[in-house]
Design a protein around this nucleic acid. Structure first.
Length: 359
DNA sequence: TAGGCCATCTGGTCCT
DNA sequence: AGGACCAGATGGCCTA
């Protein structure tokens, strides 16, 4: 199984390399464009430089061929507050003596600074490009709702640790434990998103009617794809932190399953109904509440539907900390499912995890 | 309006 | 001298 994991990971890493290459190509093109856009700055600086040189005709008369022989005039201690009174009692500075900053030198320094700025921009763009690539291989990816840089790094670290744990133990982890590992140290909004992504991929998560009220059951595999979309207005949004209507997610000691139980506070949408149109949020808030007991070591999570609405009046669910934002205030922000999903095609470890939870 | 996130500029440091 | 890297400062944008 582990070898299968590696055999699946490696080609994907190669794909990733390719993707990174193409993306960096794209980035380079963009960067060239942006550099072109800023060439005028350099031109301006150069023009300014030549202007300054001509204005400095008094002491730079022979600087006509661009190789200006700048004055090698040494400072007489008149810069940086090194006046005579300040130098009293202090040893004379050693090292290369500062050259006088002629206007030409100042302008050249400006040009150098502009070039350095351009390089710095390029460098940061490359860094961002790499971060984008990283975003695509961590468990939760959205084109529209990007994880922040810091959260991407945290999630990536947790993901690596989680995969390492799986490799070390050679067995699938408890689902909730897995979610815990992934979300360790993440902000609440990111935790919500990750939980939402994981839950998004629980095709059979929904609809298993119970006698004691609407109840959702997590299947053994939490990672298979289902077609519902969800929304998250902004990852930094604190909307999903707590709520009244909640979905309690309990891990069972038996099997690998856990169940999500709707608590009072909302109406369960009839996902099984053909009338149901999937423009709604699956739970996007997963918040550990407590450890229930030692015997079943159940972890309780509340999974809140934040402003989950449907086209049917009876299906409008209002969850959220205050309710003020609930009720579909952000329905226009719902990213389509294809924009928020697990990258099965890019993340074989996830497929492997799928198989873990399928077995 | 405050806070989070981000891009950019800038000066400093280290290395080649 | 120049490039890479870094961290601080700053201002813009967005959301609650």
């Amino acid at each position: 199984m582990l070898s299968r994991l590696f055999s699946e990971v490696l080609p994907d890493v190669q794909r990733l390399d390719w993707a990174e290459d193409s993306e960096s190509e794209h980035c380079k093109v963009k960067e060239e464009h942006s550099l072109h856009l800023r060439e005028d700055e350099l031109d301006e600086a150069r023009e300014g430089s030549s202007r300054a040189e001509s204005e400095m005709a008094g002491d730079d008369e022979d600087d006509d061929d661009g190789e200006e022989e700048e004055e090698e005039v040494e400072e007489e201690g008149d810069e940086e507050g090194c006046g005579a009174d300040e130098n009293e009692g202090k040893p004379k500075k050693r090292g290369p003596k500062k050259r006088k900053m002629t206007a030409a030198r100042v302008e050249r320094s400006k040009v150098r600074r502009l070039k350095a700025n351009a390089r710095e921009r390029t460098r940061m763009h490359d860094l961002n490009s790499a971060l984008d690539n990283l975003r695509k291989v961590v468990p939760c990816y959205s084109k529209t709702q990007k994880l922040s840089k810091i959260e991407t790094l945290r999630l990536a670290k947790n993901y690596i640790l989680a995969l390492g744990e799986i490799l070390r133990n050679g067995k699938r982890p408890d689902v909730v434990t897995y979610v815990q590992m992934l979300c360790k140290g993440l902000s609440q909004p990111t935790t919500n998103l990750v939980a939402g992504c994981l839950q998004l991929n629980t095709r059979n998560f929904l609809t298993e009617p119970c006698a004691d009220g609407p109840r959702f059951h997590m299947p053994s595999s939490p990672f298979s794809v289902h077609p519902y979309s969800y929304r998250c207005s902004r990852l930094s949004s604190p909307h999903y932190q707590s709520g009244s209507g909640a979905l309690n997610l309990r891990a069972h000691s038996y099997g690998s399953g856990y169940e999500a139980v709707y608590l009072p506070g909302g109406t369960s949408p009839d996902y099984s109904s053909p009338d149901y149109e999937g423009q709604h949020s699956p739970p996007v808030c997963l918040k550990q509440q407590q450890e229930s007991s030692e015997t079943d070591r159940n972890y309780h999570y509340s999974m809140h539907y934040s402003g989950l609405t449907t086209s049917r009046p009876g299906h409008s669910l209002h969850f959220g900390p205050s309710g003020a934002r609930s009720g579909g205030a952000h329905s226009e922000n719902i990213p389509p499912f294809h924009e928020v999903h697990l990258h099965h095609d890019r993340a074989p470890p996830y497929e492997e995890l799928n198989s873990f939870f399928h077995n």
